[in-house]
Design a protein around this nucleic acid. Structure first.
Lengths: 204, 204
DNA sequence: TGTACATCAGTGAACGCGCGTTCACTGATGTAC
DNA sequence: TGTACATCAGTGAACGCGCGTTCACTGATGTAC
């Protein structure tokens, strides 16, 4: 397919190429040159749209956080119909995102990029975690005030469990070798955790 | 300090140099050349002891699994004095390992190296996970047979939570920004989880 | 103990490669009149 | 509608760099007699 001299939407084409490379070859397996080649363009052309390799990578992460936050907000759905059901939907959404947008996920959480150097990123990342914290807070309201752990701690537990499942059992070392699907692992793990919080009956 | 022409123990010196580089600069920030330089040796000398860059990295991981498995076994201590106490000690040991041996941890779990290509590695990795599975199985024995999840699932939950805490809250994006120490996060998370399993009284 | 010799762990130079980035350039697009 | 010109998104060649790896070599170590 022959395009004209101007690409049309090179910026996004480069982001998409980067996504494919990241998903296929890990956080390191992405080079500006390869992304340019995949977009049928000279490496130098990238500099019309990005400050450099790092900037392109940051844009990938930025778009990822955008999608991620939207997905999480949609799944949480303001805690309807019940806080518990909405919470479990949010957990499923987390894994669905990691599975469907592996390039984004890796850029966001595994590329080790410097959040401080890209201020927009930091704000977006916090928007994502805010969803989870709000969900945890709403959930906590169903607990007697006495034994209610801080919502930010609950959300940290959930996030850690979710991330661990993705890293170890969806990708990673144990990916094929575990008898459990990541989705089942997260769901069962969350269930036990919620029971421990007192949000599910002890004998389900 | 001037050594003789022969190094003495170059093999281990290279492993140690690699560990420092990995810990300081991430899984990618390790090159054969830099490791050689850190050991005061020509890059070519590395090939007297390792088949190449990958082989050196694999040796780092191998030693890591060795230490890791030993540490976990020691902490588990055959489930004494009680399965519960031993289990919590094992969780603490996991985080202590990640904190004390960051280079090893990264090489083991984040370097994305091909386990199948290094058969010895696979066996060692399984020895590590066997400790956790045995602990989970011993714990489960205190549950009524009816609502006893498979031990391998319990150990997967624990591993995922521990790994997630390390990645997100010890290193990683939320490292400094969370109000909770990783150790506290894991301990509280494990506590809630164990309560959910029915191994701790509901109102602690 | 002394000597001849094999072994072996290092050197140093060289290689081809792909990387990110720069630069002067050119051809297409859009705008003013 | 046509023309002159500014803008802008690309090219292509070049750069310096550090990488992993190879090779013939050399100097130190260890062993046999």
């Amino acid at each position: 397919m022959k395009r004209g001299y101007h690409h049309g939407n090179l910026r996004q084409a480069l982001v998409d190429a980067a996504l494919d490379l990241i998903a296929a070859q890990g956080p390191t397996g992405f080079t500006l040159s390869e992304a340019a080649k995949a977009a049928d363009v000279t490496p130098a052309a990238v500099y019309r749209h990005f400050a450099g390799r790092d900037d392109l990578l940051a844009e990938v992460a930025r778009q990822g956080f955008d999608i991620f936050a939207a997905l999480m907000e949609f799944a949480w759905n303001d805690g309807k119909p019940t806080a518990l059901a909405a919470f479990e939907a949010t957990g499923r959404a987390y894994l669905a995102f990691a599975r469907k947008y592996p390039g984004h996920y890796i850029a966001m959480f595994e590329a080790g990029l410097n959040y401080a150097a890209h201020p927009g990123l930091q704000a977006l990342a916090q928007r994502s975690s805010a969803v989870l914290e709000r969900a945890a807070a709403d959930l906590s309201r169903h607990l007697p005030a006495g034994r209610r752990p801080p919502a930010s701690m609950v959300s940290a537990h959930i996030w850690a469990l979710s991330h661990g499942v993705v890293e170890l059992y969806m990708r990673g070392a144990a990916a094929g070798r575990s008898p459990f699907a990541p989705e089942d692992l997260l769901e069962s793990g969350l269930g036990i955790y919620l029971r421990g919080l007192g949000l599910l009956p002890p004998d389900q």
